[in-house]
Structure formats: structure tokens, C-alpha cells
Write a protein that binds this DNA or RNA. Structure first.
Length: 298
DNA sequence: CGTACTCTGCAATGCCTGGT
DNA sequence: ACCAGGCATTGCAGAGTACG
């Protein structure tokens, strides 16, 4: 592929925000283990056979709020409405829906026209503010809305809650989507990945440089997927951690690297990640994958 | 042990919406 | 149009934890 001139960056090189900047400082992945604890063995096995299987293995991951801010502040300004690009280790990394699908395993297909009609939106809100100061917990909202008594349905709803709007009570969810909860089979195959990805990109894309300069910034959706895309593209970030060397093995395909990432206890060492970025140790990781590639933006 | 980082709670601010 | 209330977002600070 011909190398073209890169688009301009959100911040000029060397002028990115520094310090303790954070993205989604209230986002964590503990809900995954909580859901697993709430399920009995059979129900858990059933759920592990669905699109949620990969996400359910991420309970040992720590979402690095500072690392997320680090690479998002190195964004490239592109006209791609549904893609985010950022520079890492001297290379442009793309975050598109196929990348999201690869790292999360969630269904990202376009919903059929018959299943998704109308553009009306409903706001599912937590009473009180987004940090749980209100009088109604997330769980009771789902119970109030959908009458869940079943642990499986509740866990799946919880998964979607975590994927779509982790720690955020303001995510707009279409009524058609909410109605999916009435039918478990439909719910399990619904493209939740697409919902989450669109939320993420549409909330991150319009953010101004000024907002990235602030100490904290809130982005909806499953932002941890961005971290996984970056780590998969540049496993050298984890070379300091346990098992990092095996992950950074040049001969491994992206699917194999992802398998290692998902199944392990994962926490990004931000100072080391910055070192890797500055040394330019990224590799064209997806060369052996037919689904995902790193290429220069048009 | 010190430092850096994550996580959490509380408060302030500003936006949105509904009522008048 | 104006006002008031509710709520999301952000800022700040401190406790807990991991790591060198």
C-alpha cells in the first residue's frame, strides 16, 4: 500500500497534554466478575457460548484511564465518521468497527431493517447522578424496566449495561433495543458490539483538544476495547509484565495475541507504554489477519 | 519506603427540560 | 422568555494499591 501523508494530529507532536489526565475515571471491569459470581455453572456455560464469551473473560483486566487518555490525545484528525485513528510508536493505529469486533468478540453486524425501525431515542437514566449517588441502583432500574427475576437475563442485561454505558447513567438507548430484552434468544444475538462501538466513536470523535487538555474526559461505550486494540497492535507495551515476552513474539498472529491478552490478568504500565511509544517499537501486527490491518489513512 | 497510579466520594458548574 | 429543578460532567482530594 502506498504511504500517503498522514492527516494532522489533534495535538502537535510534543505538545500533547501531560500529567494525570484520565478518560472515564469511573469505568472499571469488575462488573464482569460480579456477573460471573451471580450465575450458577450451567447459566455461565450458556453465556460463555454467546457473543459475550470474550468480554466475560476480561474480569482480570484493569482499565488504564491514563493510558486511554495518552493515546487518545495522540489522535489523528480524519474525516472518517466511524473510525478513530491515533499515533503510537510512530505508526497510525486504526480503531474501526472490525477492530472492535475482533478484540471483544461481540456481534457488530448491522441490525436487520425489520428489527430496527425508527430513530426515536429513550433515555435510560439512573436516578441521581452518574456516580450512583441516587436512590435507585442499576439493577433495580433493569428490574423496574423489564421485570427481570431470572439471573441469566439479569446478568446479560448487566453485561450490556457494562458494554454500552459503563458507570454512566445517561446513555441513550433506542426503545427497539430495550424491547430486545423481552426475548432472550433475540437478545443474545443482537449486535451489542455495534451499539457500543457507535456510542464510543460518536462520543469520542467530537471532543475538542480543549477537552483533552482537561484532567478528565468522559467517553461512552466500551473504551477498554481501544486499549486492547493498541495492545494487540503493540504487545511490546506488556513486555515488562508477566508473560509479556510471549505476547510480544513476532511470529504470533493477532488472534493468538488477543487470546493471550484476554485470558490473562492485564494491567498497563503507563510509563513503560510511553517508553515503547517513544522508541517506536510497534510492529505491523495484523499482517497475518484477514480481518484487520493497520494502514495509512487516506 | 517512596512514588506513581487507580479508585472513589463529594462538590461545583453548566446544560437541559418542563412549567408558568 | 424566564425560572427552577434535575442531572451529567468535571474538578478536587484522599485512601488504597502496585511497583521499583
Amino acid at each position: 500500500m502506498e504511504e500517503l501523508e498522514l492527516p494532522s494530529r489533534l495535538f502537535e507532536t510534543g505538545f500533547e497534554p501531560v500529567g494525570r489526565k484520565r478518560v472515564n475515571s469511573y469505568f472499571n471491569l469488575r462488573w464482569i466478575d460480579l456477573i460471573k459470581l451471580a450465575l450458577d455453572k450451567d447459566d455461565l456455560e450458556m453465556l460463555q457460548g454467546t457473543q459475550f464469551a470474550t468480554v466475560l473473560r476480561m474480569g482480570g483486566h484493569t482499565f488504564s484511564v491514563m493510558f486511554a487518555h495518552y493515546f487518545l490525545s495522540r489522535q489523528l484528525v480524519t474525516e472518517k465518521e466511524l473510525e478513530l485513528w491515533w499515533m503510537f510508536a510512530g505508526k497510525p493505529l486504526r480503531y474501526a468497527i472490525e477492530d472492535f469486533a475482533l478484540v471483544t468478540g461481540l456481534n457488530c453486524e448491522e441490525p436487520s431493517a425489520s428489527s430496527m425501525h425508527g430513530k426515536e431515542k429513550v433515555v435510560v437514566r439512573v436516578k441521581g447522578n452518574a456516580r450512583g449517588k441516587g436512590t435507585t441502583s442499576n439493577s433495580s432500574i433493569w428490574e423496574d424496566l423489564f421485570g427481570f427475576g431470572d439471573a441469566v437475563a439479569f446478568s446479560i442485561a448487566g453485561s450490556c449495561w457494562g458494554i454500552l454505558c459503563p458507570m454512566c447513567g445517561s446513555t441513550k438507548i433506542r426503545p427497539e433495543v430495550v424491547n430486545k430484552l423481552a426475548n432472550l434468544d433475540e437478545f443474545l444475538i443482537y449486535p451489542w458490539g455495534r451499539e457500543s462501538f457507535l456510542l464510543t466513536v460518536k462520543s469520542a470523535k467530537p471532543r475538542s483538544p480543549l477537552q483533552y487538555v482537561q484532567d478528565t474526559i468522559a467517553i461512552q461505550g466500551f473504551v477498554h476495547a481501544m486499549v486492547l486494540v493498541t495492545l494487540t497492535a503493540c504487545p511490546a507495551i506488556l513486555v515488562k509484565a508477566e508473560d509479556g515476552a510471549s505476547i510480544a513474539d513476532d511470529n504470533r498472529r493477532s488472534e493468538e495475541i488477543l487470546e493471550s491478552l484476554v485470558s490473562r490478568k492485564l494491567a498497563v504500565n503507563v510509563p513503560w507504554a510511553k517508553t515503547v511509544d517513544q522508541k517506536g517499537q510497534v510492529r505491523l501486527l495484523f499482517r497475518s489477519s484477514s480481518r484487520i490491518k493497520i494502514y495509512f489513512a487516506e
